[in-house]
Design a protein around this nucleic acid. Sequence first.
DNA 1: AAATGACTTGACCATTCGGTACAGTCGCGA
DNA 2: TCGCGACTGTACCGAATGGTCAAGTCATTT
Lengths: 186, 186
Amino acid sequence: MPRVVSERADVMPALTEVFREHGFEGASLALIGQRTNLGKGSLYHFFPGGKEEMASAVLGEIGAWFETSVFKPLRDENDPRRAIGRMFEAVDTYFRSGQRVCLVGAFALGDARDRFAAQIHAYFAVWNDALRGALVRAGRDEETARTLAEEVLAAIQGSLVLARALNDPGSFQRALERLKARLETA
Amino acid sequence: MPRVVSERADVMPALTEVFREHGFEGASLALIGQRTNLGKGSLYHFFPGGKEEMASAVLGEIGAWFETSVFKPLRDENDPRRAIGRMFEAVDTYFRSGQRVCLVGAFALGDARDRFAAQIHAYFAVWNDALRGALVRAGRDEETARTLAEEVLAAIQGSLVLARALNDPGSFQRALERLKARLETA
DNA sequence: AAATGACTTGACCATTCGGTACAGTCGCGA
DNA sequence: TCGCGACTGTACCGAATGGTCAAGTCATTT
């Protein structure tokens, strides 16, 4: 039998995909095991806390990715308009132009909401804040920026729901285009 | 022991709430039984197809409610602006001003997507169509109406996600106000 | 009053669940 | 070369899962 020494990081992509496709309750250890090519022994070696720790790690990784690829640029980049443009690019890539679902959003709507409330809340709150800040730096007044940021987040999440429900990724792409256009016009 | 003769319709509200709160996988028969005050025997008497038929019935009832309370008025009412206003009222009531989640949206994002693809698709497609039609009758050109309808549906769904994630029903209410304002300005 | 049939109960079934235990297998530092 | 510790597969656990079923209980019909 092959000994494939792996580390936690190696299984994260597969783990993420399983939770994204099946939700928390739907992702059984059996399924996780076969998708990661890891026995329960290994799984519990890397995640002593079991399924809950696995899901939490996935949320953490997603949060970290967005932090470096989206939130931080929104806060730090000199040109806020450029940062916002990059945000849309990153979002489009991440959600595979609407073919992928937002795990955090799915968790928020489902039964995993309470269990991971803090991480789910943080994801959206931090994004909202970073975007609002960038909009202010781009010249919007505080109130408009607040409204716009909330609107953008909701539109992204909602269009992902629609894309998935109607089996039409175009819903997501069109939403992104609309949002870009709206944020560009001063 | 009390004999409480019930019919299918009596258990629908409780059934709906269980699926809404726990999703398809998360709603166990034990949970369903205690929330409906019905033993498995009765449950299987009313829904021979088991959990799947229960969830399907719930989706059907939701669809029917929206059909008579939202879609049909959008299509048939003489004054399309009035119909749209009523749609927002109905939606606000139905989702308890953002404290309730959209079961159809939650199913669309989760693992129940494939199982109930047809019903999920129909819900959004019919709504989209009815709203687009009303917007055209209200004076919008075909293309604007199509875009606006899609935008409204996505905004509603997205703001429900946000409301739930941020634990702030206000996200939903503000979204509804914004949408109302946007659809009123010709 | 007997029969019917919708409704209910609770025991029961095989399967799967998340999780544990443990006997290994190997890479690596001493 | 030896032993430690990281890693892995598998057998196993009790509980819970979705689902079945026989044996009722009654209100209604006849």
